[in-house]
Design a protein around this nucleic acid. Sequence first.
DNA 1: TGCCCGATTAACT
DNA 2: GTTAATCGGGCAA
Length: 178
Amino acid sequence: MLEVAPDLIGATLLFAGVGGRIVEVEAYHHTEPAAHSFHGPTPRNAVMFGPPGYAYVYRSYGIHWCLNFVCEPKGSASAVLIRALEPLEGLRVMRRRRGMADERLLCAGPGRLCEALGITVAHNGLALDQPPFEILPRIGVVEVVAGLRIGITKAIDKPWRYGLKGSRFLSKPLTPVA
DNA sequence: TGCCCGATTAACT
DNA sequence: GTTAATCGGGCAA
């Protein structure tokens, strides 16, 4: 899981033809209290305990949707939270859905990202390798920076946040960690 | 059965 | 900088 997370940076994620390049992710594992799967399976996070390669969508603060990729190994209940995209495809659609013109903020944050792509809990448990999802491997070399996770209050010490170096589409600046 | 809190965002002072 | 919006899960009673 800690291997696939940084590898996702720079890959292109499309949902029904709308999306862009992944510039920010965070890794979660059920052995640390920040993860939803920490306390064991529930109806909400059940997909995290299933096979890898599926989407886990959950509601945050009762308002927003957040998209996760379920990772190897199966049953480990580990997942990677997609935090930010660099908008590339379907800009018009995303702008309409988000109701704003600022391209930089279209997908800079988990809740914004889901709203822009039109992802809701209805897509929870969908396979990531078939429509409407489409993931294209990154092309060429990208500079990945690791940092401390943000927006959480538990297990903040783990440097499991990964971002594309210098990207202006990050939800917040990335603080490098050795 | 009820209360408190969170992997957030946007609007307001 | 601060605060409301809003819902499912964990924990206390």
